[in-house]
Design a protein around this nucleic acid. Structure first.
Lengths: 220, 220
DNA sequence: AGCCCAATACCCCAATGGAGGTATCTTCAT
DNA sequence: ATGAAGATACCTCCATTGGGGTATTGGGCT
């Protein structure tokens, strides 16, 4: 029994490449292709109303004209929660990955994976797995450990320099003046000076307080 | 070049089985085994101080006598953040999986995986991957979509006395030996003794590290 | 009654940390 | 080109901290 899939990819040459690859595998049957989220959602409803089978797995690009693959997934899952979604994209940044998973995708692959890998990922997904590459898995785990950390979240009020933030991070990791100095190839005197300045800016007077502030403010 | 690992497993027969399996693979070198978290942390510090190499990957059981594998991982990561941890357990519940990942583990396998799979998982882990089975991956993703609002472990897990927890709280608030002593109407010597004992139990060596651990653990 | 253990308190000592300085060298924007 | 800000480095002084001890007390468990 072959797995019925749909493909959402706006790049024509990539779409062609996928189709050609899947043609070699009789375990995969491509029901239809779309070049946008809107198009996909319409075609899906057609499949549904006209009694044609639904795709079991959807390969979804993230960057699409019109609504994004993430929002498309959100809409898809709202109406057809049993259809599995695998993101296929070039993005490796945590935010996009996590947004995809939150929107309802269960797999996340990069576009340049070999066809064999993609096919077995589709099978895994259908069997209830969550296929992804090692690197992506690591990023997901990283984002579990460090939740809700946005970029450039250094407290504007404190006006810390890059170097200062760098030193704060090492301090939070439990470093002493000397160990931090060694890591940064600078003198412990310099580390001391930086920390003194940080204390002034953040109005704390000890490492312990700084660690607490840093964690709470999300500087780390 | 073989990968140096350590094994933390309290069940003697399972430990033996692991060792026998690894004996067949020259790509894995078992540096040492421990039957408890405390024992492991001590041996690790010995390795460190005596210039013997550190293990690169630790296979950690979750259910251990004394402190749990999760808390052991927390303490390990505090002192040796570069040592990778792979949980090897019978538990498949989301909570244990997520706690493990939050504590710093990057891999999560079940005990009955075939030796080949475990060995390649160790290699993947060392290369920066996050090896896990499909089923586990799915649970992680499920828990991202459906973040359970479970309360954090207020109970320390490190077998701390009430007084010790009390002192930790004041320490996190930025108190010094003397200010804490004043608040509790005891001698600063006593405060010191308590803190020394806490350091021993939690395997940290400074206020900064303790503050970080305490916040992560939710003792505060 | 005897034992364990948490809580209390003290000792020494070396290392680290915090607060005050001063000073040079870049870099960058006015 | 001049001045501000950041990164670098050094100084002194004294308090705090961390690690190694030892010891007494009072509760609770067996």
């Amino acid at each position: 029994m072959s797995i019925k899939i749909a493909l959402v990819e706006d790049n024509p040459s990539l779409q062609r490449r996928f189709l050609q690859n899947f043609a070699f595998y009789e375990e995969i049957e491509v029901l239809f292709c779309s070049i946008s989220g809107e198009d996909f959602l319409e075609k899906l409803e057609e499949c549904d109303t006209q009694g044609v089978g639904l795709p079991e797995v959807v390969l979804m690009d993230i960057e699409l004209p019109g609504i994004s693959g993430i929002d498309t997934t959100l809409a898809l899952k709202e109406n057809y929660p049993h259809v599995e979604v695998m993101m296929i994209t070039v993005f490796e940044d945590e935010e996009k990955i996590m947004d995809s998973l939150r929107s309802g995708a269960s797999g996340y692959l990069l576009k340049d994976e070999p066809p064999d890998f993609i096919v077995s990922a589709i099978q895994d997904l259908k069997k209830g797995g969550a296929p992804m590459t090692s690197k992506i898995a690591r990023k997901i785990i990283g984002s579990i450990r460090n939740p809700s950390v946005k970029e450039v979240n250094i407290e504007p009020g404190f006006d810390l320099s890059e170097r200062e933030v760098e030193i704060i991070k090492l301090l939070v990791e439990g470093g002493s003046y000397t160990t931090i100095a060694e890591k940064l190839f600078i003198s412990p005197h310099t580390v001391k000076t930086h920390i003194k300045n940080v204390y002034k800016k953040m109005h704390v007077h000890s490492k312990a307080s700084l660690v607490k502030m840093a964690i709470k403010k999300g500087i780390i």
